[in-house]
């Protein structure tokens, strides 16, 4: 792994993988994701995650195409959040958690022994279920915190990044005159978009979203969903959602997890209209979960 924390998607094409690498495991019989997305940003192979005795994620192989939205759905406790968190090594915080398998981010092994998780997290940003702007910081400070605490001092640059990130999060017009106000003075939906701006400001290659709208009202939800469509021009987005409707609205491809296993992975339309697996069909028709 090189020293520069955020290697660029464009420059790391050198590690282009054979098409089969990001395909689903053949025994699951799922087709590769949309052929129009040739470059896998994240390539997870045979990932297993354990919490103590609990085998939370079982042998998942999944390729996530770059600059698209990938949704992970499944009933609660199916390991979808755990899988998401292992993509930026955040699951390591839980004592007793173990992982084996390989996860490549644009060709770099995230779990190589020499890799600092901090470096991984600079390249893989995350937005959480509950909006959590830092309560001691202003709106602007919240946006730039990832830069400032990583040693960026240049004020002009920070201002640029503030505006750019807030624009990308579709929040700029609402807050441009209140940048000095506390981040927690915003409404719930605005707070979540502020969190997105905060994650976007450090220019990660991948943006993970863990049920980002489950605490929001429908109007705020629509805004965040629209935002994802904008963001995928610049970022690879992986979203965990408990709402199948949301997956159909925002995701280019969808993965269905059940009991820790990846059951089916396909372009969203295909997965919902023409599921190949019985379990998938049962889930999307509401027979369980």
């Amino acid at each position: 792994m090189n020293d520069q924390p955020a290697a660029l998607p464009e420059t790391s094409v050198k590690a282009t993988l054979p098409a089969s690498a990001y395909m689903n495991s053949p025994d699951r019989g799922a087709p590769p994701p949309a052929a129009s997305q040739p470059k896998p940003a994240i390539d997870a192979r045979n990932v297993n995650i354990f919490y103590g005795q609990k085998h939370a994620v079982i042998d998942v192989t999944l390729g996530i195409p770059t600059k698209s939205v990938t949704a992970i759905i499944g009933p609660s406790g199916c390991g979808k959040s755990t899988f998401l968190r292992c993509l930026n090594r955040l699951h390591e915080l839980i004592p007793g958690s173990r992982m084996n398998g390989t996860i490549l981010l644009n060709g770099d092994d995230l779990y190589a022994p020499t890799v600092d998780p901090t470096v991984v997290r600079r390249r893989v940003g995350m937005v959480f279920q509950k909006s959590n702007p830092f309560p001691t910081m202003s709106i602007a400070d919240n946006v730039t915190v990832g830069l400032r605490l990583n040693g960026v001092r240049d004020r002009a640059f920070l201002r640029e990044r503030t505006e750019d990130a807030l624009r990308k999060a579709a929040l700029w017009d609402e807050v441009k005159n209140d940048l000095g106000k506390p981040g927690i003075s915003l409404s719930g939906g605005q707070q979540q978009r502020l969190c997105i701006a905060r994650a976007v400001a450090v220019q990660p290659e991948v943006l993970l979203m863990d049920e980002p709208t489950s605490a929001l009202d429908p109007i705020a939800t629509v805004k965040v969903e629209e935002l994802m469509n904008e963001l995928k021009r610049n970022f690879t987005i992986v979203i965990v959602t408990h709402s199948m409707q949301q997956a159909t609205r925002v995701a280019d491809q969808t993965a269905f997890f059940y009991l820790g296993r990846l059951v089916e992975y396909a372009p969203t339309r295909e997965l919902f209209n023409n599921p190949k697996q019985k379990q998938t069909e049962a889930y999307i028709t509401g027979r369980f979960g």
Binding site: T118, V119, T136, G146, L149, C195, R198, L208
Partner: peptide
């Protein structure tokens, strides 16, 4: 709340800075 620690970690901020500049400051 743990959410602040996780959010800061997900930004790639070093742990000691999270402790001192975010958790302790909060």
């Amino acid at each position: 709340p743990n959410g602040y620690r996780e959010a800061a970690l997900a930004l790639g901020i070093a742990r000691w800075k999270i402790s001192a500049r975010i958790v302790a400051k909060t």
